[in-house]
């Protein structure tokens, strides 16, 4: 990453996120980076701060009927329905391919019941290849669960407290933006033992077809992501960062280094790049090099000094 032509020392991009020491603050968002290995042709994965893999459930899940995705102005709606290979196939087939990848692999987990979450955490506890757990209490797509935990502070706390008893790994609670007060939820999961929070997940939305008078997505509603949601993400990360002492990971509409820096400015200790990976498979790497360039240009020696430096 050091530019041999430049004589200034490389900026220190390392950040600490709830017990994880990351070499830089750029991670990839769950569900937008496959199981990681798909992107190896486009960048040196070891350069990233971390990789968050597709949400895992106890048993394989086929997901929702199609259509599952549709583009919207500066964004997209998805209703994948948390399709995934299941935790056992992940451990047997996907995780070994990431062995030696040179960056922390974070498992994103979701369940329909508190017991599902705790069983997943237990199953992953002995896996040295999993650096941390990101607990998705926010997916708006699965009718039977997900959303119920993420929008109610006491239910959110219940899930996190239970997972906490099953894992010593860093525990990140991934929060839904579909709530009235993000501060309340963030404080609830902090109190239940989360080491960090990540936000935002997608915002519930809808697209309809005037010609057929039907919803575009088979699931009727879906989750909005991409550049369109960045202002919402920034506002919520700013509110969450002021509400809790644990680190906040900023997500939502990050395409460029400037977007990522805006999240760091409002208080995110790290960021995740999501939908942008679909548009440019090297997006996360470009965000990282852009952050490094910004630090050099602005004589920021350690990115830690920049984080949360917003003047209001």
């Amino acid at each position: 990453m050091t530019d041999p032509a430049s004589d200034s020392p490389a900026p220190d991009l390392s950040v600490r996120v709830g017990g994880l020491l990351l070499k830089n603050p750029v991670l990839t968002a769950s569900g937008t980076f496959g199981y990681g290995i798909e992107f190896a042709p486009f960048m040196d994965l070891s350069a990233l701060g971390g990789i968050v893999v597709k949400g895992l459930s106890l048993t394989p899940s086929p997901g929702n009927p199609p259509p599952r995705v549709v583009e919207t102005p500066c964004g997209m709606l998805n209703a994948i329905g948390l399709e995934n290979v299941g935790v056992e196939a992940f451990l047997a087939e996907k995780l070994p391919k990431l062995a030696g990848v040179g960056t922390p692999v974070i498992a994103n987990i979701y369940g329909k019941t508190v017991e599902d979450y705790s069983a997943l955490a237990e199953r992953l506890e002995g896996e040295p290849g999993v650096a941390a757990l990101e607990v998705n209490i926010s997916c708006p797509n699965v009718k039977a669960g997900g959303v119920a935990f993420g929008v109610d502070p006491s239910a959110a706390a219940q899930v996190i407290a239970k997972v906490r008893t099953r894992t010593k790994k860093p525990l990140i609670a991934k929060l839904s933006p579909n709530v009235t007060s993000i501060a309340l939820i963030a404080r609830a999961v902090e109190g239940a033992g989360a080491d960090a929070v990540s936000l935002i997940n997608t915002i519930t939305g809808m697209a309809v077809d005037l010609a057929t008078r039907r919803p575009v997505l088979a699931n009727v509603t879906g989750g909005l992501s991409g550049p369109a949601i960045k202002p919402v993400g920034l506002r919520m990360v700013w509110e969450a960062a002021r509400a809790v002492k644990i680190p906040v990971i900023g997500i939502g509409g990050i395409v460029t280094a400037r977007d990522a820096l805006e999240y760091l400015l409002v208080g995110a200790a790290a960021v995740q790049v999501g939908t942008a990976n679909f548009v440019d498979p090297a997006a996360a790497f470009k965000v990282l090099t852009g952050i490094e360039g910004f630090c050099r240009e602005n004589n920021i020696r350690a990115i830690r000094d920049f984080i949360g430096s917003l003047e209001v």
Binding site: G31, G63, R68, N78, F278
Partner: peptide, 10 residues
């Protein structure tokens, strides 16, 4: 995505 990452193309 066109490359197996989003699972949108079911």
């Amino acid at each position: 995505c066109g490359m197996g990452a989003c699972l949108g193309c079911a």
